[in-house]
Design a protein around this nucleic acid. Structure first.
Length: 425
RNA sequence: GGAGAGUUGGCAGAGUGGUUGAAUGCGGCGGUCUUGAAAACCGUUAUACCCGCAAGGGUAUCCGGGGUUCGAAUCCCUGACUCUCCGCCA
């Protein structure tokens, strides 16, 4: 949520940011509603002041045994006017809020202006020693490998739940679990995060807090009977941990890491990247979330990306880091780096992590503040999050990069103590 | 699922429909005293919004939302949550 004051005072700046994000700007509408609202608030507050004074007077008259009927009638009239104004005010608030909830965060000034993914900027890439982009005749894709080695069963996953619900089997299941545990331990031990095991279903307020709702509502699963939503990422519970709370400055930065299953409807994306793990409705992800002071959030973003990259380096997975351009930036993000791992069989890069700084956009929605030590005032924190990492597409790259010409999988060294085996054959 | 009790400021806890943003205690902050500290004493101690250059003023907030009333922390309706007992259950 953007600060209404920012919109009021710098409308052209806001319009520019929204336009660069390829979102509809409704700033004119907002300004009009805001003005009407303020006028009405002023008028109504004055009426209320009058009523309060009158009511007190009535109390005094009654106490001293006088007749207050005339004054009571007069004040009642004011009261009726107030009721009318309040009703209109509620309408205005609802309307204004409704629009504000759909206004995206503004891109940071360092973000390249662009209209689509093609204009994202590659900032670096990392390749293991001796790595080659060449695809040999023997290179199998992850679905073939999964079938051949009997570790992935997409067909039966579909039988159970529908397409996009992968089923891992045998060493595949173990490998998946090992990957999750390995990544969690890595961030805990090497990067100093605190582990959270969150609920996988959250209420509507939480979904609003991080910005999934209302804009992306169609992409979310919903359990209507209970008013709950299966989380699309652990970002939602992890960030909402401090919803409606005020933190102390000395507590910051707070760094959480947590595993969750992630559920996404992927509405409207049928047919795109539908093979195997490339686009699924349920996947596993280890997510990092930070609450930081505003002045440090961009440094923290760089560190966050590095934390995610460290995993890939140790797993010897080729990857590149992209800075997203304004047009590809998500609704809530001010700046975002994507990490993409190389898929030898697909011969393309697959997004496996997205690390974003939301500045105070989420903190405003979720009302997460901190008390400053210098002036004792409270201010919104900045929130960040990044996948560290999503397992499904990582699994694609992991299986494909570590296959031998005979179609076996060599488990990366770092994972072996988690899997208990070194080869899948 | 059934029955009951509850939710008040950072915390504990009082509160009769009428100058209650809210007693009291603790904590926090500032000060006096002290070589320093403790103790004691004195003072202070929320948030949001609106008007205003400012000083300042106003409004709202006692779990959320609606209502009754000239006036609601207090009465009514509704939702959420917590606790106790019963039932069911991995």
């Amino acid at each position: 949520m953007l600060d209404i004051k920012l919109i009021r005072e710098n409308p052209e700046l806001v319009v520019k940011g929204i336009t660069n994000k390829k979102e509809p700007s409704r700033v004119e509408e907002i300004l009009k509603l805001d003005e009407e609202r303020r006028k009405l608030v002023f008028e109504t507050d004055e009426l209320k002041a009058k009523r309060n004074a009158g009511s007190q007077q009535i109390g005094q008259i009654k106490k001293s045994g006088g007749d207050a009927a005339a004054l009571m009638a007069e004040i009642k009239e004011i009261g009726d006017k107030i009721s009318g104004n309040d009703a209109r005010l509620r309408e205005l608030d609802e309307e204004l809020n409704g629009i504000l909830m759909y206004i995206p965060n503004l891109p940071h000034e360092s973000v390249p202006v662009g209209s689509s993914a093609e204009e994202n900027v590659e900032v670096r890439r990392w390749l293991p020693e001796g790595f080659s982009f060449e695809k040999t005749n023997e290179t199998l894709d992850h679905t073939s490998l999964g079938k051949k080695l009997n570790i992935l069963d997409f067909e039966r996953g579909t039988k159970l739940s529908g397409s996009g619900f992968p089923l891992y089997k045998g060493k595949g299941a173990t490998l998946e679990r090992a990957l999750i545990n390995y990544m969690l331990d890595f961030h805990l031990q090497k990067h100093g995060y605190t582990e959270i095991f969150p609920p996988f279903l959250v209420n509507r307020e939480s979904m609003k807090g991080t910005g999934q709702i209302p804009k992306m509502e169609d992409d979310m699963y919903a359990i209507e009977k209970d008013g709950l939503y299966p989380i699309p990422t652990a970002e939602v519970p992890l960030t909402n941990i401090y919803r409606d709370e005020t933190l102390q400055e000395k507590e910051l930065p707070i760094k959480f890491v947590g595993y969750s299953a992630c559920f996404r409807r992927e509405a409207g994306s049928y047919g795109k990247d539908s093979k195997g793990f490339l686009r699924v409705h349920q996947f596993n992800k280890v997510e990092m979330v930070k609450f930081v002071k505003p002045e440090t959030s961009y440094d923290e973003l760089e560190k966050l990306v590095n934390d995610a990259e460290d995993i890939l380096k140790e797993l010897q997975i080729p990857y590149r880091v992209l800075m997203l351009c304004t047009g590809d930036l998500s609704f809530s993000a001010a700046k975002c780096y994507d990490i993409e791992a190389w898929s030898p069989a697909e011969q393309k890069w697959l997004e496996i992590s997205s690390c974003s700084n939301f500045e105070n956009f989420q903190a405003r929605r979720a009302n997460i503040k901190y008390k400053r030590e210098d002036n004792k005032k409270s201010d919104f924190v900045h929130t960040l999050n990044g996948s560290g990492l999503a397992t499904s597409r990582l699994m694609v790259s992991l299986l494909e990069t570590n296959q031998t010409p005979e179609g076996k999988i060599i488990v990366p060294k770092a994972l072996q103590k988690y899997t208990g085996f070194a080869v899948i054959e």
